[in-house]
């Protein structure tokens, strides 16, 4: 299984904790900037909160995509992964999950605190956290495709955002929509189930597409 890949990437992340913290602080700062931009009117902030938190999560997850493969690419480990008798898709799945554990989970854990800044109700906070919990792994999985395609390219960091952000749109819509739906009393069940469906679909398809992309980029 790809468990030891996850273990290895977590170990590497532990040895370079600053990288993990940078992503988290980026997320916190972006979310905290919005009230300064639009003013402290609490009713406006409350309606904006889900969208702001979700867009910030999108950006934070995207900014850290570069790290998913680039260090392995630069020191030759990626070549060894491609030559592994184990399935490359499974290795990629392991790396994407490790990426999520390192960048996505901290965002999920931090989001209720940021939601309080925007005066969200307890229910809304719960839905926001649940939507991020289901949605952020999809960001890592889809992002892996973009990271693999832009491997070793000049200006790969900006390019990956062009490729990946449009694909993130459904996640953004249903993630932020879940919170708004629950606030409007419609219940967030439908939105959350759709996010779950996206998660399952991307668990199956994205590692495979990423493996194909890695072979293309390494040739």
């Amino acid at each position: 299984m790809s468990l030891w890949v996850i273990q290895r990437d977590l170990l590497l992340a532990m040895r370079r904790r600053s990288d993990v913290l940078t992503t988290l602080f980026f997320f916190i700062i972006v979310v905290s900037l919005f009230p300064l931009g639009v003013g402290p009117e609490i009713n406006i902030l409350r309606t904006m909160a889900p969208g702001v938190v979700w867009v910030a999560a999108l950006l934070a997850s995207m900014l850290s995509l570069g790290r998913m493969f680039s260090s392995d690419y630069l020191d030759g480990t990626l070549e060894q992964m491609l030559l592994s008798p184990q399935s490359l898709s499974m290795l990629v799945l392991g790396k994407a999950l490790a990426h999520w554990l390192v960048t996505g989970v901290p965002l999920v854990l931090m989001s209720p605190v940021l939601g309080i800044q925007y005066d969200l109700s307890a229910d809304a906070l719960l839905v926001l956290t649940a939507s991020l919990l289901l949605g952020t792994p999809v960001l890592s999985l889809i992002g892996a495709i973009g990271a693999a395609l832009t491997l070793g390219l000049r200006g790969g960091g900006v390019l990956v955002s062009l490729l990946v952000l449009p694909l993130y749109i459904p996640i953004l819509i249903f993630g932020a929509g879940a919170v708004e739906a629950s606030a409007a009393g419609l219940g967030a069940g439908a939105h959350l189930s759709l996010l779950g469906a996206f998660l399952l679909a991307s668990l199956v398809l994205a590692p495979w597409a990423t493996a194909v992309s890695l072979r293309i980029s390494m040739e």
Binding site: L12, R15, R16, D75, G76, M81, L83, P85
Partner: peptide
Amino acid sequence: ITYLGHLSGVKDDLTAIENLRISSALAG
């Protein structure tokens, strides 16, 4: 097969022994 290229596939942040064990696990 075992391939050793120009790049040695040795991770800076891991110890020598971790490097060896992980790269072997990668090779199955």
